[in-house]
Simulated scan of single mutants.
Amino acid sequence: MKANKTKHPWRYLIGIIGGSGLDDPDILQERTERFVDTPYGKPSDALIVGKIKDVSCVLLARHGRQHTIMPSDVNYRANIWALKEEGCTHVLVTTACGSLQEDIRPGDVVLPDQFIDRTTKRAQTFYDGCHSCAPGVCHIPMAEPFCTRTREVLAEVALGLGLRCHPQGVVLTIEGPRFSSRAESLMFRKWGADIINMTTVPEVVLAKEAGLCYAAIALATDYDCWKEHEEAVCVDNVLKTMKENASKASNILLTAIPLLGKTDWEKTIAEHRAMASSAVMLPRQ
């Protein structure tokens, strides 16, 4: 992707939502932190503002910096709203996941382009009729949930770093916090899911409503529990692989974000915002 050397009217600010073990603030230079509030409550933690090679970024730990918030209790609306209000145009997220396919090995990077939602308890829209900041009802299109251009940059970077990277995939999000039964894991494979996690939905949906360029870096930690002759997923093994994956996530972000900052995103950002705006049906006067 060629960088545009001219100045653009857009202020590119990259939001980063760090998943379990993948939220290291040391990737940012000149760090400061601010605790904010939103109409939807408080985000998971402070917004850590800083730079990656002169590109302004805002880092937010999805589960809190002490990992005290379970997946169902993450305030996804507050997190996305806070990043949008901060001025973010892009949101890059990291997430640990289980592999549901033989060719996606623990340690591999997956850049999902589709999702299947198996959550049951989570608010999935800002337009709930209870907040004056989001009047009406939003029927947001979900044919392409993730930002294609941002995913392309991430894929180019991951492959350039020599990582095993799958440039597309279907992520299935379960409610959690428990892992799947073997019967569920086998069923999800038959549905065509490639990886499984507990956080992509509703985060991706809300980012779409907010008109953001959203993409996820999923790092496989295990084979869930479907694979014969493999140890079923457990916390100890997940934590071990996450430590190995953390440097991969950091390297992708440190390389991709400067590219994002140099690229002309004017048209893409305008398209995302226009789609979000056109999806809202306002109350009749």
Rank of each mutant, 00 (worst) to 15 (best):
Ala215Asp: 00
Leu254Cys: 11
Glu175Trp: 10
Lys243Leu: 14
Ile196Glu: 15
His166Met: 07
Val157Pro: 04
Thr199Arg: 08
Pro167Phe: 09
Met242Pro: 00
Leu186Arg: 15
Asn251Ser: 14
Lys240Leu: 08
Glu175Ile: 05
Ile195Glu: 01
Leu186Trp: 07
Asn251Gln: 12
Trp226Met: 05
Leu186Pro: 00
Arg189His: 06
Ala218Lys: 02
Val170Ala: 03
Phe188Ser: 05
Pro202Ile: 09
Val233Lys: 12
Ala183Arg: 04
Val153Arg: 05
Val205Cys: 14
Ala210Ile: 00
Leu254Gly: 00
Trp191Ala: 05
Gly176Ala: 12
Thr200Gln: 06
Ile174Thr: 12
Glu209His: 04
Leu186Glu: 15
Trp226Leu: 04
Asn245Asp: 15
Phe179Ser: 06
Met242Val: 13
Arg178Glu: 15
Cys165Glu: 12
Ile252Tyr: 07
Lys248Asp: 05
Leu154Ile: 06
Ala220Leu: 08
Ile174Ser: 14
Ala218Glu: 03
Trp226Tyr: 09
Tyr214Leu: 00
Gly211Asn: 04
Leu163Val: 06
Val153Ser: 09
Ile217Ala: 01
Glu175Ser: 15
Arg151Lys: 10
Ile174Phe: 09
Thr199Asp: 10
Ser180Met: 09
Leu254Trp: 01
Ala256Gly: 08
Asp224Ser: 01
Val153Gly: 11
Met198Ser: 03
Thr173Asn: 12
Leu253Asp: 11
Ala155Trp: 05
Met198Tyr: 06
Leu154Thr: 06
Gly160His: 15
Ile252Asn: 06
Ser180Trp: 13
Ala158Arg: 04
Ala158Phe: 06
Trp191Gln: 09
Gly162Leu: 15
Thr221Phe: 07
Glu230Trp: 01
Ala193Asn: 02
Val205Asp: 04
Val205Gly: 01
Glu231Ile: 05
